[in-house]
Amino acid sequence: MHNKNQYLQEELLRTSGVNPKKCMRCGKCSATCPAYDEMEYHPHQFVNMVESGDIEPLLNSKSLYRCLSCFACIDRCPRGVEPAKLVEAVRLAAIRKQGANHLKADDVPAMLDDDIPQQALVSAFRKYAK
Protein backbone atom coordinates (compact mmCIF):
# COMPACT_ATOMS: atom_id res chain seq x y z
CA MET A 1 0.00 0.00 0.00
CA HIS A 2 1.42 3.36 -1.02
CA ASN A 3 1.74 5.76 1.87
CA LYS A 4 1.93 9.35 0.71
CA ASN A 5 2.40 10.59 4.25
CA GLN A 6 5.37 8.42 5.08
CA TYR A 7 7.59 11.30 6.15
CA LEU A 8 4.95 12.83 8.41
CA GLN A 9 4.05 9.43 9.78
CA GLU A 10 7.65 8.69 10.73
CA GLU A 11 7.94 12.11 12.31
CA LEU A 12 4.78 11.58 14.38
CA LEU A 13 5.91 8.19 15.58
CA ARG A 14 9.35 9.52 16.45
CA THR A 15 8.21 12.56 18.40
CA SER A 16 5.38 10.74 20.18
CA GLY A 17 7.39 7.60 20.90
CA VAL A 18 4.24 5.59 20.15
CA ASN A 19 4.37 2.22 18.44
CA PRO A 20 0.89 1.72 16.94
CA LYS A 21 1.75 -1.88 16.05
CA LYS A 22 1.33 -2.79 19.71
CA CYS A 23 -2.39 -1.95 19.46
CA MET A 24 -4.69 -5.01 19.62
CA ARG A 25 -7.79 -3.05 18.61
CA CYS A 26 -9.61 -3.44 21.91
CA GLY A 27 -10.94 0.10 21.97
CA LYS A 28 -10.33 0.65 25.67
CA CYS A 29 -8.82 4.09 24.94
CA SER A 30 -12.01 5.18 23.27
CA ALA A 31 -14.06 3.51 25.97
CA THR A 32 -12.31 5.54 28.63
CA CYS A 33 -12.05 8.88 26.75
CA PRO A 34 -13.98 11.66 28.51
CA ALA A 35 -14.13 13.77 25.34
CA TYR A 36 -15.31 10.98 23.05
CA ASP A 37 -18.63 12.51 22.04
CA GLU A 38 -16.93 15.76 21.04
CA MET A 39 -14.51 14.06 18.69
CA GLU A 40 -15.06 13.01 15.12
CA TYR A 41 -11.98 10.80 15.28
CA HIS A 42 -11.58 8.88 18.50
CA PRO A 43 -8.40 7.80 20.26
CA HIS A 44 -8.34 4.32 18.72
CA GLN A 45 -8.80 5.90 15.29
CA PHE A 46 -5.79 8.14 15.83
CA VAL A 47 -3.75 5.00 16.39
CA ASN A 48 -5.16 3.18 13.37
CA MET A 49 -5.10 6.15 11.02
CA VAL A 50 -1.55 7.21 11.83
CA GLU A 51 -0.45 3.62 11.37
CA SER A 52 -2.07 3.42 7.94
CA GLY A 53 -0.79 6.89 6.92
CA ASP A 54 -4.27 8.38 6.75
CA ILE A 55 -3.19 11.53 8.57
CA GLU A 56 -4.72 14.46 6.64
CA PRO A 57 -8.20 14.09 8.13
CA LEU A 58 -6.70 14.10 11.62
CA LEU A 59 -4.73 17.29 10.97
CA ASN A 60 -7.92 19.08 10.03
CA SER A 61 -10.12 17.62 12.74
CA LYS A 62 -11.50 19.47 15.76
CA SER A 63 -10.80 16.26 17.69
CA LEU A 64 -7.28 17.61 18.18
CA TYR A 65 -8.60 20.40 20.38
CA ARG A 66 -10.99 18.29 22.37
CA CYS A 67 -8.45 15.93 23.90
CA LEU A 68 -8.29 16.90 27.58
CA SER A 69 -4.78 15.52 28.10
CA CYS A 70 -6.21 13.57 31.00
CA PHE A 71 -3.87 10.66 30.16
CA ALA A 72 -6.59 8.11 31.00
CA CYS A 73 -6.06 6.33 27.67
CA ILE A 74 -2.34 6.16 28.44
CA ASP A 75 -2.87 4.51 31.81
CA ARG A 76 -5.70 2.19 30.84
CA CYS A 77 -4.36 0.88 27.53
CA PRO A 78 -3.59 -2.81 28.13
CA ARG A 79 -0.93 -2.76 25.43
CA GLY A 80 0.95 0.37 26.51
CA VAL A 81 0.20 2.15 23.21
CA GLU A 82 -0.37 5.57 24.82
CA PRO A 83 -2.78 7.13 22.29
CA ALA A 84 -2.76 10.61 23.91
CA LYS A 85 0.88 10.99 22.94
CA LEU A 86 -0.11 10.47 19.32
CA VAL A 87 -2.93 13.01 19.57
CA GLU A 88 -0.43 15.50 21.00
CA ALA A 89 2.02 14.84 18.16
CA VAL A 90 -0.65 15.33 15.49
CA ARG A 91 -1.88 18.50 17.21
CA LEU A 92 1.62 19.94 17.22
CA ALA A 93 2.03 19.04 13.55
CA ALA A 94 -1.16 21.00 12.85
CA ILE A 95 -0.54 24.15 14.90
CA ARG A 96 3.15 24.44 14.06
CA LYS A 97 2.16 25.39 10.52
CA GLN A 98 2.40 29.09 9.78
CA GLY A 99 -0.79 30.87 10.82
CA ALA A 100 -2.46 27.70 12.01
CA ASN A 101 -2.90 28.67 15.63
CA HIS A 102 -6.16 27.38 16.92
CA LEU A 103 -6.41 30.00 19.67
CA LYS A 104 -5.70 33.68 18.99
CA ALA A 105 -4.96 36.21 21.69
CA ASP A 106 -7.74 38.45 20.43
CA ASP A 107 -10.30 35.75 21.11
CA VAL A 108 -9.30 35.35 24.71
CA PRO A 109 -11.02 38.28 26.48
CA ALA A 110 -14.43 36.95 25.46
CA MET A 111 -13.63 33.62 27.10
CA LEU A 112 -12.73 35.04 30.48
CA ASP A 113 -14.67 35.44 33.65
CA ASP A 114 -13.56 36.74 37.04
CA ASP A 115 -12.59 33.41 38.47
CA ILE A 116 -10.87 31.63 35.64
CA PRO A 117 -7.40 30.63 36.84
CA GLN A 118 -4.23 31.62 34.94
CA GLN A 119 -3.56 27.94 34.63
CA ALA A 120 -6.44 27.55 32.16
CA LEU A 121 -5.10 30.34 29.98
CA VAL A 122 -1.53 29.17 29.79
CA SER A 123 -2.62 25.60 29.27
CA ALA A 124 -4.93 26.53 26.44
CA PHE A 125 -2.19 28.54 24.78
CA ARG A 126 0.24 25.70 25.12
CA LYS A 127 -2.23 23.30 23.59
CA TYR A 128 -3.79 25.49 20.93
CA ALA A 129 -1.12 27.86 19.73
CA LYS A 130 2.55 28.12 18.86
Binding site: R25, G27, S30, A31, T32, Y36
Partner: peptide
Amino acid sequence: GMVGKVTPEGDKLKVQASDL
Protein backbone atom coordinates in the same frame (compact mmCIF):
# COMPACT_ATOMS: atom_id res chain seq x y z
CA GLY B 1 -14.97 -3.21 22.24
CA MET B 2 -13.79 -2.79 25.76
CA VAL B 3 -15.22 -1.24 28.89
CA GLY B 4 -13.23 1.83 29.95
CA LYS B 5 -14.83 2.77 33.24
CA VAL B 6 -17.46 1.53 35.63
CA THR B 7 -18.98 4.17 37.90
CA PRO B 8 -21.21 2.99 40.72
CA GLU B 9 -23.90 5.60 41.34
CA GLY B 10 -27.07 5.02 43.32
CA ASP B 11 -28.04 1.42 42.74
CA LYS B 12 -26.67 1.40 39.21
CA LEU B 13 -23.29 0.68 37.72
CA LYS B 14 -22.67 3.17 34.95
CA VAL B 15 -20.70 1.36 32.31
CA GLN B 16 -18.80 3.42 29.76
CA ALA B 17 -17.56 1.34 26.86
CA SER B 18 -16.72 1.48 23.22
CA ASP B 19 -18.57 -0.20 20.40
CA LEU B 20 -15.85 -0.31 17.79
